[in-house]
Design a binder for these strands. Structure first.
Lengths: 255, 255
DNA sequence: CGGAATCTTGAAGTCAATCAATCTACGTGG
DNA sequence: CCACGTAGATTGATTGACTTCAAGATTCCG
């Protein structure tokens, strides 16, 4: 990465009020904008709270918007005509969702109570074309999403059910405590219902449930209830994902 | 899309000689460059022929390049430490491959004799930062690849073996005769071996072979040999992909 | 022509799906 | 407050699709 270019030379002006104390100000896509552009963006942006299990927007709702995820978790999914469904991505805060390139029609559903900061597509594209730094940031974001989609492709295509579940849980751990060093037990609230988990992992509800029970019985994780998980050994969980060369850690299951 | 902006006002100058008669000149990513920039790009570009089944480059070969596919077919794949492999994308001519955003280390292998036009990553990024139109084109490309990866995620995660094979064959048909209207039998040379097809579809060689035989026995396609296919009914093939609402076409199999 | 890959085909085995209860959590209203 | 109803989750029994194992058949190339 290079030092910021001088193209948006308008770092002047006050921070627009809606953006003051925005939870995503530091890591979101808007961080590359000067206060001036940020102000223009803030003028057309709308904050919205989407309750758990409600659609953020419908698969093909015309014009479309681009939004930043402020909090919560959102699933992007696609269905076959006979109803089979696959979640193709989970989005966590600071991610951008909506009609950015690709334009594939994806069902976008809040899996937790979710707050977004939404901008009409046209406005976003205007600001985009004026801010090369923003364009590079968009490329970085889409690239990261492509990378992730391909990683899941490997998981869904080649991993066993147990490995997929472990991979999902391990991803939650990684997302939770960013790049922090591992250590003691972590408590994590699973954002997805068993059904959504199944749709994400290309499995059935029953299989997901069974594999979670196995992970629990083998002492890798524990559950207070269906959504409250304790990770007892991050190492063994990672070993169960199939992503690491096995060091013959006893108890690592692959079925 | 908007009419070309006046930013690269240097459409002047002669077409650089290597680009004269380039098979990708019209549809490749370079089409958005003026002759001036194109000339600079041509100076640092290298054409290369990669024989079937050879690596275009290795998973992590340092600096990296960005290349346009001139002809042939390339697979991008990722492996688990125990050797299980998944092809995460097939790339056809006009596509860009290499270290563009995402940066995930992917094994890149020619599945047919393949010609590429390659540029060192640094040079490409320089030209990229000078040409907003090129940046927008890159966003478009990555977005399309994201879209495709997600489509395959649905296929691998939720479709039966028979549907996956049909989807693959149908994709080849679609790629072959661009958006042309369907009609009589088409002959298509399968670019992937059975093994590579299995790695692409998340199946085994045997299952791929069996499903192809079933497709043949049901009269949807025919094979002269393992790689020379005749599509007898594009409609029934499409029906077999699972992507279309079924109109109760007799003979459409889903097992 | 011969030998090695690659592909096809068959038989047996296994993992995950399906079918079917049961259990738990939660919200509503009596 | 507890009975009741519903939705989600777990658990068990069985089925079935795909894999694995094992021969053959075919193609490719020296």
């Amino acid at each position: 990465m290079q030092p910021a270019l001088k193209l948006s030379l308008d770092r002047s002006g006050p921070i627009p009020s809606p953006c003051l104390g925005c939870p995503v100000r530091r890591d979101g896509i808007c961080r590359v904008l000067g206060n001036d552009e940020l102000g223009r963006l803030a003028l057309v942006s709308v904050r919205r709270v989407v309750p758990r299990h409600e659609a953020v927007w419908r698969a093909g709702d015309g014009s479309g918007s681009v939004a930043s995820l402020l909090s919560g978790v959102v699933s992007l999914s696609r269905s076959l005509p006979d109803g089979r469904q696959q979640i193709v991505a989970l989005q966590f805060p600071t991610s951008v969702i909506g009609s950015l390139a690709g334009g594939r029609e994806l069902e976008t559903v809040a899996q937790e109570t979710t707050r977004i900061c939404s901008v009409p597509r046209g406005h976003f594209e205007n600001i985009l074309s004026r801010n090369p730094e923003l364009e590079r940031e968009v490329i970085r974001q889409i690239g990261a999403q492509l990378d992730e989609a391909r990683n899941w492709l490997v998981a869904i295509g080649r991993k066993s059910a147990a490995e997929r579940v472990a991979t999902y849980l391990h991803m939650l751990v990684t997302n939770h405590r960013s790049p922090q060093r591992d250590a003691g037990p972590v408590e994590i609230l699973l954002p997805l219902s068993r059904g959504a988990t199944a749709d994400f992992l290309g499995l059935t509800i029953e299989t997901v449930s069974r594999k979670m029970t196995e992970l629990k019985r083998s002492g890798i994780v524990d559950f207070d209830d269906a959504t409250r998980m304790h990770v007892l050994s991050t190492d063994r969980l990672r070993a169960a994902t199939g992503d690491e060369p096995v060091l013959d850690q006893p108890g690592s299951l692959r079925n």
